[in-house]
Each structure stands twice: as structure tokens, then as C-alpha cells.
């Protein structure tokens, strides 16, 4: 039976962010912005939503006197992403 896709992840920008974070240890906000081609405002909003869902950790710090935002996927985020991909596969009939 087809399961509903996680609405937190089934959004282009949030899914892009999670897909980027799944393959790295951590990434800066500027890196995510460059790779997703999103505007800073929109990206901030989506990152906040992922953070509220507990899917990512966000740390704000200073590096060489410049503010820096570091994002990192949480274990809950990894589980949610794996579940999302599994549901996608069962929806598309690609799993064996």
C-alpha cells in the first residue's frame, strides 16, 4: 500500500537541503545556498522548518569575525530521509 510521503521532506528546497546534508558531515549556509540556487530568505525559512522538525541541527558561530551558520543532519533526519526514499521507491515500484 502506498504510504503518504513525509510533507516536511516532500518540498523541493527542503528535500534538496536534506539530500546535500546526508552526504556530508556538516555544511555552511552559503554552501547550501550555492548548491540549491535558492534565495537566502527562502532558504532560511526552509532550514528553520527542518530544524523545528528535528531533522537538522543549526549552529550559529563566528569565523574570522564573520557570522557563520553551520547545518548538520540529525539521526532523526537520517531516519526520515531513509523512510522518504523507501516510500518513494515503493510508490514508483522500483524496490524489489
Amino acid at each position: 500500500m502506498f504510504k503518504d510521503l513525509d510533507p516536511i521532506l516532500h518540498s523541493q528546497l527542503r528535500l534538496a537541503v536534506i539530500s546535500l546534508l546526508i552526504s556530508v558531515k556538516e555544511a555552511e549556509f552559503t554552501f547550501l545556498r550555492e548548491k540549491t540556487n535558492a534565495t537566502a530568505g527562502n532558504l532560511s525559512v526552509q532550514i528553520q522548518k527542518l530544524k523545528e522538525a528535528g531533522y537538522i541541527d543549526v549552529v550559529k558561530q563566528f569565523k574570522d569575525n564573520y557570522p557563520q551558520t553551520i547545518c548538520k543532519i540529525t539521526p532523526l533526519g537520517i531516519t526520515a530521509f531513509e523512510e522518504y526514499v523507501k516510500n518513494l521507491q515503493s510508490y514508483l515500484g522500483t524496490n524489489t
Partner: peptide, 26 residues
């Protein structure tokens, strides 16, 4: 990146494209 609803096929494509973008960052 637009926020409209997108299909499961597009989802998979997006995941693949994002993961390959991190590979260029080695």
C-alpha cells in the same frame, strides 16, 4: 528553487542531483 508540488520522479532526480553536487566538492 520553486516551492510548487512535484512528482516522486522529480523527487528522486533532485536527490540524485544534490548528492552528485556534493561529490564535486571533494
Amino acid at each position: 528553487m520553486a516551492e510548487e508540488k512535484f512528482s516522486p520522479e522529480q523527487s528522486l532526480q533532485l536527490i540524485q542531483s544534490m548528492i552528485s553536487r556534493t561529490k564535486q566538492n571533494m
